[in-house]
Simulated scan of single mutants.
Amino acid sequence: MDALLDRIPVTEDGRRVWESAPPYALRHIATHAAPAGRLDELIADGDYLVHAEPDTLLAAFDSVTTEAGRLARLVYRRSIEHHRVLSAERRRQVLAVDAALFRRDSRRQEHAVGCVGECCFPGGRATPGFRDRRLPDQPAASLGCRLPAVTGGC
């Protein structure tokens, strides 16, 4: 796993730049992390969840051992069918909302970083497949994202 991590650029403040990661790393790093007992460490980086190959990550998720890892798995699986077809930016937005639904402020804020453009939240026009889901009754501003949240059908 370290050999793959070494291929991913890092910012001056130490954050991995997953959008610049080699495609092989995005597809297979979870497969390497799981048997090494390091998947919890990998998925603690919320930006990795945004850019990971969904089906490979899903297959590796059973190896999580920490409470934070189980929570990340729960949040990610909530919208797995959408992660497969959404761009990374849309996936970031969906993960932020799903984290809010589980009331996990730190994860929600981590995914909300970088939210720009049109919103694709549950019930919104941007993603018709979400029409069967609704956000809990709470003000849109409490979601912590800089995008408007749609709490009803459009």
Rank of each mutant, 00 (worst) to 15 (best):
T31L: 08
G123S: 05
C119S: 15
A72G: 03
R15N: 14
R38T: 04
V97G: 01
A34D: 08
D40S: 07
G129M: 09
L49A: 03
P148V: 08
V150G: 05
R77C: 12
P22A: 11
G129N: 10
I80V: 12
L86M: 13
E53C: 06
E118L: 10
R134K: 09
H83L: 07
R91W: 01
Q109E: 14
A36Y: 03
L95R: 00
P22D: 15
G123L: 02
L86C: 09
H83A: 11
Q93Y: 01
A36C: 03
T65H: 12
S20T: 06
H32E: 13
R125P: 11
E12C: 02
C145A: 10
L26A: 09
H28E: 11
H28W: 07
R131D: 11
P22T: 05
H51R: 05
R91S: 10
C120K: 02
S87E: 10
G46S: 13
P148S: 11
H82S: 11
L95W: 00
E12D: 14
R70K: 15
R84H: 03
L86H: 09
F61P: 00
T66G: 10
L86W: 09
E110Q: 13
A30N: 04
S142L: 09
L57Y: 01
L135C: 11
S20F: 09
A34K: 12
R73A: 14
A72K: 10
A52F: 01
P22R: 06
W18F: 05
V150K: 09
D105I: 08
L95Y: 00
L42W: 04
R131F: 08
R73C: 04
D40M: 06
L74K: 11
Q138C: 07
A100D: 10
Y24R: 12
R90T: 02
A59F: 02
Y24L: 14
E19Q: 15
R146G: 15
D137P: 04
R133C: 06
D62G: 14
C145M: 11
R108F: 01
G14A: 12
V150H: 12
A59D: 15
L39M: 05
A44M: 03
H83T: 04
C120V: 14
P128M: 07
D137Q: 10
D13G: 05
Y76S: 00
R16L: 13
G144T: 00
T151Y: 06
L71M: 15
D40L: 06
D47T: 08
V113D: 13
A44D: 14
D47V: 00
G152K: 14
R134N: 03
S106H: 13
L86I: 01
T66D: 11
L86Y: 04
L143V: 03
R104T: 07
R77P: 00
P22N: 03
D98L: 00
E12T: 14
G117V: 05
S106P: 07
H82G: 05
G144R: 00
V97E: 09
A34R: 13
T127M: 12
T11D: 10
V17G: 04
R77K: 12
H51P: 02
A68Q: 12
A33W: 05
L57V: 01
V97P: 00
S63A: 15
R84C: 02
H32D: 10
R108M: 13
S142Y: 02
R84K: 13
Q138I: 07
A30H: 04
L86G: 01
R131I: 05
